[in-house]
Amino acid sequence: MFASLFVLLYIGHLLADYPLQTDHQATHKADRSAAGWAANLRHATTHVVTCTAALTVGAVVLDDVALSAPMVLAALLWIGASHALIDRRWPVQWWMNHTGQTSWAANGGAAHVDQTAHVLALALAALALAAG
């Protein structure tokens, strides 16, 4: 069940991060202002909505997906919160600065570290859902 859940959450993530993310959200979600937080939270909400839809479809269509409502709620809260934190950008910058990746960060590596952090958060959510 873990693999099915992970794929469903990853599809939800890709939809929210690429075709459903507005230019305004992408540009301003890390701004240190009320408008930045608003853009960030709208984007994180999109992740929660798309992952909810993906899990719903999976639960209806796939035989191996059986979900507990409290665990789904916890997983979706985790997805929204972790996505909002990672997209503030400072956690990725902090990581790269403290792990000897400053050159890679200056040459476009931050986007890869950002996506790796998101995928890790999704994997943890899928594990919790599979265990619950």
Rank of each mutant, 00 (worst) to 15 (best):
A125W: 04
A54G: 03
W78D: 04
S33C: 10
M96R: 07
L127P: 04
P19M: 14
T56D: 00
V49T: 08
D23Q: 13
A131I: 07
L77N: 03
Q101W: 11
L122G: 00
R88K: 15
S68A: 05
S68V: 00
I79M: 06
V60G: 05
P91F: 10
W90K: 09
R88E: 08
H13I: 09
W104Y: 14
G100E: 07
V65F: 02
A74H: 00
S68R: 05
A39D: 10
A38M: 10
A110H: 09
C51L: 04
G132V: 02
A105C: 07
V48C: 03
A54P: 01
H98Q: 11
A39S: 12
A54Y: 01
R88F: 08
W94F: 15
A53D: 04
D31A: 13
W104A: 14
T22Y: 12
A74Q: 03
A54E: 02
A131K: 01
A54S: 05
A26R: 13
L129K: 03
F6V: 01
A38L: 14
A66D: 02
V119W: 07
V57H: 02
W37A: 12
V92Q: 03
L73R: 00
A54D: 00
A34F: 15
A53H: 00
Q115G: 08
Q101I: 09
L9W: 01
G108M: 11
H24S: 13
G100Q: 06
Q115L: 13
L14Y: 11
H28M: 12
S82D: 05
A26C: 10
S103M: 13
L129A: 03
D87P: 02
D87S: 09
A69S: 00
A39Y: 06
V61W: 11
W90D: 10
S4G: 07
A54C: 06
A110D: 14
M1F: 03
R89G: 06
T27G: 11
L8I: 03
M1I: 06
L15R: 05
W94A: 15
D23H: 12
R32S: 12
